[in-house]
Write a protein that binds this DNA or RNA. Structure first.
Lengths: 133, 133
DNA sequence: ATGTGGCTTCCAGTCATGGGAAGGTCAAGG
DNA sequence: CCTTGACCTTCCCATGACTGGAAGCCACAT
């Protein structure tokens, strides 16, 4: 299977597959006599796994760990769960951070007339008057 | 005022101030005979403005636009508001995306025993069985 | 023979910094 | 006067996770 084919089937762009190979996330694909990479069903499985994990927001480093656990038949599910829970916490931190920003920005937007006049509480607040919630 | 002093007063690291200068976000600071940058109160105001805007998650490019509007006395507040609203929408998109991830990851975490045994729905789902919500 | 599309490698850019090297400067203390 | 330590300067490299593009080979159809 050529890289274009597996890219299509896995949803991972060819460019990204080469990148994953270069950083060692996936093993180096075997080569045909003409130099083209040749992928098999196993590679497809792996790339789909990666695609799903990335889709859930796991960092590439974490995906590498998940892949290792996936291949390790004697893993303890507690290890997988711990990794996933750390990820969940990091998602929660990001959501909280964005929520704080969101409230602040929304507050500013609310107070700005948004017309042709130059007076604008958004700019005033950014300039330093952060005392009138 | 040396760069270290203004860094302290503005909360923007010296390194970052030099970077802002290099990309033209702030004007080039004047120099003392010894080559040191010399900042004044205006620079401090500007850096504080930038720091606030960055703290609200505005991209550096957007901060540049906000700075330009701030300095333009004949601006229309509608322009500022529009920029802020676009930012608000982008925050909302990110929150929604993280929320979707969060629910999926939490669902997986819930279903995993997390003990010494190798069976793990997290890995199974990532491997492709995405049909049992 | 020519066109097209896919494959290869390698280099550079993205975004917003942070780290660290190599070297000049300044104020204080011995 | 000299040294120490804390500043400052520029420069290049690294991050994360790709993406774009150039230059060149390969495969197949017309």
């Amino acid at each position: 299977m050529n890289i274009g084919t597996i890219a299509q089937k896995s949803g991972v762009p060819a460019k990204t597959i080469r990148y994953y190979e270069s950083i060692g996330l996936i093993p180096s694909a075997s080569r045909r006599p003409n130099g083209y990479r040749d992928f098999d069903q196993d590679d497809l499985q792996t790339l789909r796994f990666i695609q799903h994990a990335r889709g859930l927001g796991f960092a590439v480093k974490d995906v590498a760990d998940l892949l290792a656990l996936w291949r390790e038949k004697k893993r303890a599910s507690a290890d997988v769960k711990a990794l996933a829970m750390r990820h969940l916490e990091s998602i929660d931190r990001k959501i909280a951070e964005l929520g704080t920003m969101r409230r602040a920005v929304e507050h500013l937007v609310h107070r700005c007339h948004g017309d042709h006049r130059p007076e604008c509480p958004i700019l005033e607040d950014l300039a330093g008057d952060i005392n009138h919630a």
